[in-house]
Amino acid sequence: MGLREKLDELRQQGLKDVDSSQDLDRINDIRVKLLGKKGPIKEALRGMRDLSAEERPKIGQFANEIRDDLTRAIESKRAELEQAKINAQLAKETIDVTLPGSAVSQGQPHVIQQIIDQLVDLFIGMGYEVAVGDEVEEDHYNFEMLNLPKDHPARDMQDTFYVTPEVLMRTQTSPMQARMMEKHDFSKGPLKMISPGKVYRRDTDDATHSHQFHQVEGMVIGKHITMTDLKGTLEVVAQELFGDELKVRLRPSYFPFTEPSVEADITCFNCLGKGCSICKNTGWIEVLGAGMTHPNVLRMAGVDPDVYGGFAFGLGPDRFAMLKYGVEDIRDFYQNDVRFLTQFDQKG
C-alpha cells in the first residue's frame, strides 16, 4: 500500500470514528490518537523521506488536507456534542413559568388621595399654588367672609358641627378663599390657588352621606379674569378626570359667595348622554359648583371689586371617586377594608 493510499484509509477510518462518537471524552481520545505527535498522520509523514523530491510536496500537501479534514470533523462533532450537553442541562433546569411570582408588598395610595393628587398636579401645571387650610375653622371664615351671615338660609343646607359659637369643623374648603385673598400680594399678579382637604357636616352616615368627606377649592383672582376663563378651567378639570370626549355643560346655580353661580355637569360617562340610572336619565352628571366671586366676598377680604375679580370653584373627590369607579357606599372610603384599598393600584 502506497503512502497516499494509507493516508486516505486513515482519513476514512478517522471520519468514521468521529462520526460515531457519542461523548466529548471519546472525541478527545480520537483527536489525541489521530492528530497527536505519535499519531498515524505524523507517523505517515515521517515515511516521506523515502519519496522522490517530486512527490514529496504533493504527499505533504495531501497529508495536511487530511489533517485539516479530520480537525474540522472533530471540532464540528465537539461543538455538536457540547450543544447537546447544554441542551440537556437546560432541559433539566426547565421550570413552570406559570407558577405565581414571589409576593412583594406594595401599598397603595387611598383612592381619594389619588384623585386629590391628580387635581393638585393638574393645577400646579397651570401655575396654581396649593394652600392647605385648617379643619377647625372660625365661623367668621367658614361663613361670614363668604357672604353667609348668621340666619342665611344657605347655612341650613350645611348642617354644621360647632365647637363653640365661633369655632366649627369647617363645612367646606372655601374659608381658604378669604384667607388667601387677605395674604396675597396682588402687585405680584393674580392669585391662583387650590386648596384640598377634609370637611365635615352634621350628617348621619349612610350610603350617600358622610359626616366627613373631602373638597378641593379653587380660586383665581386678578384684574382680567373672566367667566370664559372659568368655563375653560372647568372643562380642563372635567376632561382631565373623566376623559376628554365628554362634554361640559354649565347651568345656573346659587352659592352665596359667587355671582353668577354655576353648576358644571359632564356628559354621563356611563351612557354617553343617552340616559341611564347613574345620571337619572338626564344624560348629565353634576361634578362641581363654581361661579364668579361675589363682590361682597372680595370687599370683605380687602380686595377692591371694581379693580379685581375672578372665579372660585369647589368639587368633591369623594363624589368623583364614586362616579368614576362606581363606588356605591361613601362609607367605603373611611372604613378602610383592605380589599377596597388595594383595588386602586393602577399606576399608569
Binding site: G125, G127, M227, G232, E235, V262
Partner: peptide
C-alpha cells in the same frame, strides 16, 4: 352659558 367661549386665565409669574 353654552354660547360663552372657553379660555384659560392669564399666566402669573408663579411657577406652580
Amino acid at each position: 352659558y353654552d354660547n360663552l367661549p372657553s379660555t384659560l386665565p392669564e399666566q402669573s409669574s408663579n411657577i406652580g
